[in-house]
Design a protein around this nucleic acid. Structure first.
Lengths: 231, 231
DNA sequence: CGTGCCATTGACCATTATCAAACGACGTGG
DNA sequence: CCACGTCGTTTGATAATGGTCAATGGCACG
């Protein structure tokens, strides 16, 4: 494992206070993988063998049932994923695939469970991490149940533009149908929602979406710290 | 605090392995409250001052936004609620009200945070609790995004009938509009969904819903351990 | 025996999904 | 370098689903 990746790992709240010895216990049996775009990393229902850490690229979490499929989240570096399944030693509830070429660190699940039984700091960090994620999913559920499709889109645009430094435009690095699925709608409907937002200054051209009237969009979207994170 | 209530508390995974001393540290400053039906216990957005424990009765967790309102969960004894907000010392994401006369134990948030910094067993129990809850919300989100209203209703009936001992009938002890909101639909639509399920042997009469063809209902609902807990 | 609230039903409207077709970008192979 | 095919996106038409409004019925409570 490269020194730079170790530093990246250290940058995560989850590993920040862990002793060097314990961290080695995790990383020594870990394997660093490089996956091409569109690679299935995890299949829901299977046993959780590894805690995954996304170091580079982009990963989609999705779920399938009865012929339907929906995107639950789109992950960016650096973040762990499927922590809960690893902790409980239970089947994944979500599948994962790369949306871009990605580098992923695989930490064996039993090592993770072993370490946090011995390292209280890691246990507390885990608590904070899980609590944050719990709140994030709760927010996704509220977003889904309390907003219409165009509203979800508008808020997603605000959040994404803000993460990307508020240049006033968002450029997708994955397909629109994935965004549609994340928003809980169909690709056709996403097109229509984008067309609808043109009235308030959202201009779409291919994968680039320009926000010409941020305040207008905000008025429409009505973002809330109780639903959206990181506005 | 009554001895019986202490025993009830001990019955929860969260408090099972806690030392008597630490438990006292939690329960000594706690207050036991009795609330009539339809009492607002918590308002979303407010600071989390207490970890709540539902000892008796029934509590609805709901969220509001922009004139809309939705039920997120309906709780039964014995369970804690809003653990994540307490741990992170952040605002509640959900409001809570009693649906029946209820008894609720209020554990001061700072005491909870204090105890788990000193009691590793409590920390581990918290991890397990949060991981389980995280998975539960994830399941709610999947339910919402991957199923139609009648499907959600059918699965809710299966789960509820199973919890109630599989007598083949479910009797609501709260209003149908609350169930509608939990399922993410309107009261009118719930009526129609129930009417639709009559074709597969679901007979509604007031607040009692009889399941005459369990296998037929299961065929229709297609429950999955990756979406529904406790089938 | 009213009064009020919940549940149901019907009619209507809005939203969203689905199907089909056309368009456009992109890459391959002639 | 262009023709062609593929695939994602868009657009239009249509259907299904769900929401809203209004009216009615039923039930509990005063």
């Amino acid at each position: 494992m490269r020194e730079a990746d170790l530093q990246t790992l250290r940058g995560l709240q989850l590993f920040k206070k862990m002793s060097a010895r314990q961290l080695t216990r995790l990383t020594q049996p870990a394997s660093l993988q490089r996956y091409p775009q569109n690679t299935l990393l995890i299949t829901e229902g299977e046993r959780a063998d590894f805690l995954h850490v996304l170091l580079d690229g982009c990963v989609e979490l999705f779920a399938s049932h009865n012929g339907r499929q929906t995107t639950v989240d789109i992950l960016r570096p650096t973040t762990t994923f499927i922590l809960a399944a690893v902790i409980l030693d239970q089947p994944y509830l979500k599948s994962a695939r790369t949306l871009l070429e990605s580098r992923v660190l695989l930490l064996p699940a039993d090592a993770v469970r072993g370490v946090f039984r011995e390292d209280p700091d890691f246990a507390y960090a885990t608590i904070a991490e899980l609590a944050l994620r719990y709140r994030s999913v709760t927010k996704l559920l509220k977003d889904q149940k309390l907003r219409s499709t165009p509203e979800r889109l508008a808020n997603w645009l605000l959040k994404t533009a803000s993460v990307n430094g508020n240049t006033g435009s968002v450029t997708l690095d994955f397909e629109k149908k994935t965004l549609a699925s994340l928003l809980g709608t169909s690709p056709e409907n996403l097109s229509r929602a984008l067309a609808q937002l043109e009235q308030i200054g959202v201009q779409t051209s291919g994968r680039t979406i320009a926000i010409t009237d941020l305040n207008g969009l905000r008025d429409y979207a009505k973002p809330s710290p109780l639903i959206d994170d990181g506005i």
